[in-house]
Amino acid sequence: MAMNGTITTWFKDKGFGFIKDENGDNRYFHVIKVANPDLIKKDAAVTFEPTTNNKGLSAYAVKVVPL
C-alpha cells in the first residue's frame, strides 16, 4: 500500500537518501528506485511503497510529487 513522505536527506554523489514517512519513521531509498530522479531534493514530497531490507525500513517505487 502506497505511503506519503518527505525526503529528509539526499546524498546525490552516493545515490541514496532517506524519507520520513507518514508515521514519522525514516526509510532508506536508492536513486534506481525513483521514477523521476531529476526531481529529487531535500524536503520534496514523495509517494512510495514501503518495504524492509536487511538494514531496516526502506522504500521502492518512489515518485517525487512535482510542485
Results as ranks from 00 to 15, higher is better:
F18D: 00
D13H: 12
I40A: 04
G56H: 07
Y28K: 03
T51W: 15
V65L: 14
E49S: 14
P50G: 05
D38T: 11
S58P: 03
K14N: 06
H30Y: 08
D43A: 09
K42F: 06
V31I: 12
S58V: 10
V65N: 08
N23T: 05
T9F: 14
N53S: 13
A45T: 11
D21M: 02
N23Y: 11
W10M: 03
E22T: 09
L39E: 10
S58N: 05
K20I: 09
T6D: 03
Y28D: 00
Y60F: 12
N53K: 07
P37V: 06
F16A: 03
V64Y: 02
K42Q: 10
V62M: 03
N53G: 13
G15E: 05
P50S: 04
A2F: 12
I19C: 02
F48K: 00
G15K: 08
I40M: 05
V31F: 09
K14R: 12
F16M: 04
T47G: 02
K20L: 14
Y28H: 06
N54C: 11
N53I: 07
T6M: 09
T9L: 14
F18N: 04
F48S: 00
V64T: 03
N23C: 12
F29H: 00
D13F: 09
V31N: 05
R27P: 00
L39I: 07
N36H: 06
L67Y: 13
N23I: 06
N23P: 00
I40R: 01
K63H: 13
K63E: 09
A35V: 15
G17W: 02
P66S: 13
E22L: 07
K20Y: 10
K12D: 07
P50I: 07
V64F: 04
N4P: 05
F18Q: 03
A59L: 04
A59Y: 03
N53C: 10
M3E: 03
K41P: 02
T51E: 12
K14H: 08
N23M: 10
E49Y: 15
P66L: 12
V34G: 04
D25Q: 09
R27L: 04
W10G: 01
G15Y: 05
V64N: 01
D25G: 07
T51P: 03
D43T: 07
T8A: 08
D25A: 08
I19W: 02
K14Y: 10
I40S: 01
W10E: 01
I32V: 12
K42E: 08
V31G: 05
V65E: 09
K55G: 09
T8S: 09
V31D: 05
T51S: 13
A2P: 14
A35Y: 13
F29L: 03
P37D: 03
G15A: 06
A35M: 15
D13Q: 10
N4I: 09
N54M: 11
D21S: 03
E49W: 15
F48W: 01
